[in-house]
């Protein structure tokens, strides 16, 4: 009788050990993936950015130093790229967030055909980029595009969106806002669905109209989600790159749409021989900028909470 408990204890701990190795087995494939495809490249990029005159093929370099950084920080193309990227972020983030909050709130109402509307808003996520690019080129067409048609209705001169440098940047922003909306709306919708409807009922009983309910109840209660999408979208907007191709197949008509990531791409792929040092230095600088902005947003969020 006395042996039974000790036996069961030892079996118990054996089982525990087995459980331990079991979770390791589950973890390993994922961990290997992360180490090979994320962790190693990050460290490698960081190290490479300090290697001067690095040759990727021979792995030779002339020495450690900040040479890549001084070059990149003095490169007018990089200045242009940063300027474009910052403007892009500061235009796309506020407009897309406001639009998404508005649209998500409307989609969250019990309206007729809301399923239809929801599908329509999420369509961009699953449509091929080539088809999307074609459609947008039609809409931005100088002579027959729908954008210039609407501008004309308000008596505004037509803009040559695609062929003239001054039109390129607004076109990019409009496209970028459109492209980011579906994902943003999905996140906000899930945030909205977490708001207890009794708050709306309480406000309605007191006679609050829809606009007051929106600003005084919906938006404040949605604030955590709004901050989340702003942080996620800011990061993705700082990395603006893909958006250049559907409309312009590159960085604008006169290379005027250089963005930070395009600059990295340019140093890495288009320059021959590739300048890995410059590309990685630019990448580390971009990482620093995004890091600072994300931290700033989190600090603001915390401040607002109290």
């Amino acid at each position: 009788m006395k042996q039974v408990p000790s036996k069961s204890v030892s079996r118990f701990s054996l089982e525990k050990l087995k459980n331990k190795s079991e979770w390791l087995i589950y973890l390993v494939p994922f961990a290997v993936g992360v180490i090979i495809f994320t962790l190693y490249p990050i460290i490698n990029v960081f190290l490479t950015s300090f290697k001067e005159n690095f040759n990727y093929m021979t792995k030779e370099f002339s020495g450690w130093g900040l040479g890549n950084y001084t070059y990149v920080l003095q490169d007018p193309y990089f200045h242009q790229a940063l300027k474009n990227t910052f403007f892009y972020v500061f235009i796309v983030i506020p407009i897309s967030t406001c639009l998404a909050v508005l649209i998500a709130t409307l989609l969250n109402q019990k309206i007729k055909f809301s399923g239809l509307f929801q599908t329509a808003y999420f369509l961009p996520m699953v449509t091929s980029t080539i088809a999307v690019g074609l459609a947008w080129r039609f809409m931005f067409n100088y002579k027959s595009g729908v954008f210039n048609y609407f501008l004309g209705l308000f008596g505004i001169d037509a803009i040559n969106w695609l062929q003239v440098t001054t039109g390129n940047f607004p076109a990019l922003c409009i496209y970028g806002i459109w492209a980011i909306l579906p994902f943003t709306i999905i996140l906000l919708l899930s945030g909205l669905q977490n708001i207890d409807p009794m708050y709306y009922t309480a406000a309605k009983v007191d006679g609050a109209g829809p606009i007051r309910i929106f600003f005084k109840i919906t938006v404040p209660l949605l604030m955590p989600t709004i901050f989340l999408v702003m942080i996620v979208n800011t990061i993705s907007c700082f990395k603006v790159f893909n958006e250049l191709f559907p409309l312009f197949s590159g960085p604008g008509v006169a290379n005027n749409l250089y963005t930070a990531v395009y600059y990295i791409y340019y140093q890495f792929r288009i320059q021959i021989p590739s300048r890995y040092g410059y590309a990685t230095a630019a990448a580390v600088i971009l990482f620093g900028i995004i890091f600072v902005f994300t931290m700033l947003q989190r600090i603001i969020e915390k401040k607002l909470k109290n």
């Binding site: 009794m198 708050y199 009922t201 309480a202 109840i217 404040p220 209660l221 604030m223």
Partner: peptide, 8 residues
């Protein structure tokens, strides 16, 4: 559940 507005 009182329905007090949590942000106010």
């Amino acid at each position: 559940n009182y329905a007090l507005y949590p942000h106010m």
